[in-house]
Simulated scan of single mutants.
Amino acid sequence: MNVSEYTVRNISLASWVSIPQQEVTVNTAPKAKATAKKPFEPLKPLRQWMDNLQVRDAKLAHRLCKMIPAQCPFERDIKLFSKVLFHIPPMCKLNPLYDEVVGLRFRALCYLADECGEDIAAYC
């Protein structure tokens, strides 16, 4: 590591900022690598995709506003061809994507109100 010929004392004399004339020691030892592990987030790509999803179509905005309820619904079963795929409990905060889904509905409502000039009172 090359050390510059300019010390803190020389730089402070040439500067208009007043720095006390004392030696300052700087620890230049290499820092140890951080040992903290990154948390395991398997849903992070899906969250980012939902957060970055732009609502630019009125049909899509209408569909999102109809599909995503304004309030937490009661429990229900999600079925496909009369087979129960999964069960949604009434506590929406248990859904790991709850905030992203609510944000997506909000963006759809804002698009309908701001861009399309529609009355969104029916969706609220």
Results as ranks from 00 to 15, higher is better:
residue 63 R to M: 09
residue 100 E to C: 00
residue 11 I to P: 09
residue 17 V to Y: 15
residue 80 L to C: 00
residue 93 K to W: 13
residue 81 F to A: 12
residue 103 G to I: 00
residue 98 Y to R: 14
residue 68 I to E: 05
residue 7 T to C: 03
residue 112 L to S: 00
residue 41 E to M: 08
residue 34 A to K: 05
residue 100 E to Y: 01
residue 58 A to Y: 05
residue 24 V to H: 03
residue 99 D to A: 14
residue 44 K to A: 13
residue 15 S to T: 15
residue 106 F to L: 12
residue 92 C to S: 00
residue 93 K to R: 13
residue 82 S to L: 05
residue 89 P to Y: 01
residue 35 T to M: 05
residue 74 F to C: 00
residue 70 A to G: 14
residue 69 P to E: 03
residue 21 Q to T: 11
residue 82 S to C: 02
residue 113 A to K: 12
residue 112 L to P: 00
residue 32 A to L: 12
residue 115 E to I: 02
residue 30 P to T: 12
residue 86 F to N: 01
residue 33 K to A: 15
residue 100 E to D: 10
residue 106 F to C: 09
residue 62 H to P: 03
residue 76 R to K: 14
residue 11 I to M: 10
residue 122 A to T: 09
residue 38 K to E: 11
residue 22 Q to L: 13
residue 104 L to W: 02
residue 94 L to T: 11
residue 53 L to Q: 06
residue 69 P to M: 12
residue 73 P to Q: 09
residue 70 A to S: 11
residue 2 N to G: 13
residue 27 N to K: 09
residue 64 L to G: 09
residue 81 F to E: 15
residue 108 A to N: 07
residue 59 K to M: 09
residue 17 V to W: 07
residue 25 T to K: 15
residue 63 R to A: 11
residue 91 M to C: 02
residue 96 P to A: 13
residue 39 P to K: 06
residue 59 K to T: 09
residue 117 G to Q: 02
residue 84 V to I: 07
residue 117 G to K: 04
residue 49 W to A: 04
residue 36 A to S: 09
residue 101 V to T: 07
residue 53 L to T: 15
residue 38 K to V: 10
residue 113 A to F: 09
residue 42 P to T: 07
